[in-house]
Nucleic acid binder design. Structure first.
Lengths: 239, 239
DNA sequence: CCCCTGGCCTGTACGACGTACGGACCGTGG
DNA sequence: CCACGGTCCGTACGTCGTACAGGCCAGGGG
């Protein structure tokens, strides 16, 4: 059938778009998403305020494209490891690294999510691995999504952590105060003997860790537990 | 020691604050966080634009308080179930329900996270359960956080899903088009035979599900796998 | 050859946002 | 009675996303 090539947007136009997105990503990496305004972006590109709109429909679309640029970094070079567990771990780790390098991409999700190419490539890789397990489609989907969920959740919390440490670092020596009497309500609850466990732990923390914040418990343990559970489930199904 | 009660802010002041926060939550529930502007909030309260600032330092603090209001809904009535696994599941489920009722609370995280009372109460409950496992503190923390991560990740993805369905529903019959030719780049990749698995699955989807979107694989399976992994780990440690 | 057309680019302008600030009001203690 | 501290109000500033109305220029048809 004569396939009309779906309105291909001419290579140079695509290049300009990519350039705009790359500049936006650079700004976001360096100064956070909030620093990415259309005016700032236009300045960065040496162009008038409204010019980027020639290549990008709206700021929402721009953010969507920026997220897809991050998704490109989640792709693992083929061929993937043969063992499904090793492969899923590798993908999860790569995904974590991408989110950690561009924490802003976890921030606001777009109002109107569209299926972008790199996100789809990433999904394609993951599905490919999961299908090797030979589970029914329903369960396969659940495996894929549960791992995704864990990774996203971990990265979201890690970003919050990072932000907190940054703000503590910026405050200098008064940093601890922020933890010690955080809020009148909290202070009252602590005095009243509510929250006994937290009170005990908080006391220990202040002495042992910089800023009173213990090191992160890490990405691996939870991922391993999840994979253990999946593996056991696969073993049961395979009997 | 003469404890000065840390500047208690007088009951009526606290009431006003709570009223403001409640109104903001109401707006966010009904129309999304973006609808919560200080002007709109003031209107809602029948008060001048700047008046809420008498009781709330900034919009960031307001958002923080709104999130804490959601955290209050995550609290489980005492006494908690005796079995640790049942209790953790109950907390996770309750947390999921709270996020689902107020999806906006997963949106932007505050620049300067403070420890608020309800969040702390929620953490206190969770820690209490995890400590029953008798693991070393490090591992206990990992257990707690990994479950948290999974829940947050799941809810984040569920929110995206919900948003997508809403936007598809709003578009009427053309909804499917949005999935069928999502983007020139994607169309090209599909034609070129990249993404074979997705192509096959997408074909199947369109026929079987409303809007071509399959039902969610659910919260339970992933949570169970994670808990299975944790339980096995506990069993090994307890030998 | 000219001229016209269609795509890129520009500048100005509008409405909404968060919030700084200075003044008005008002109940309470000296 | 007055003065004062806390509450409330209105105006105003700077920034944001973006609608819109032109300007520029290359390339193709008369």
């Amino acid at each position: 059938m004569g396939v009309t090539p779906t309105e291909q947007p001419s290579a140079q136009r695509a290049d300009k778009r990519a350039e705009i997105v790359a500049a936006a990503v650079r700004i976001a990496d360096a100064e956070g998403v909030d620093a990415v305004s259309m005016r700032r972006l236009a300045d960065e590109l040496g162009v008038a305020t409204m010019t980027p709109y020639t290549h990008v429909a709206s700021k929402d679309e721009l953010l969507d494209l920026m997220r897809d640029a991050v998704a490109a970094e989640m792709l693992l070079p083929e061929p993937l490891p043969e063992d499904w567990r090793t492969a899923l771990r590798a993908i999860a780790e790569r995904t974590r690294a991408a989110y950690e390098a561009h924490p802003w991409s976890l921030d606001a999700t777009p109002r109107r999510p569209r299926a972008r190419i790199n996100r789809l490539r990433h999904v394609e890789q993951s599905i490919g691995i999961v299908l090797r397990l030979g589970l029914d489609p329903e369960t396969s989907r659940a495996v894929l999504l549960s791992i995704d969920d864990y990774v996203i959740g971990y990265c979201t919390r890690a970003r919050g952590r990072q932000r907190m440490l940054a703000s503590l670092g910026a405050e200098g020596k008064d940093a601890l105060r922020h933890l010690r009497d955080p809020d009148p309500e909290v202070a009252a609850a602590l005095d009243a003997g509510e929250l006994p466990i937290i009170k005990k732990i908080a006391g220990r923390r202040d002495r042992h860790h910089p800023f009173g914040v213990p090191p992160d418990s890490g990405f691996e343990p939870g991922l391993d537990w999840l994979l253990d559970g999946i593996e056991a489930s696969v073993a049961r199904a395979g009997r």
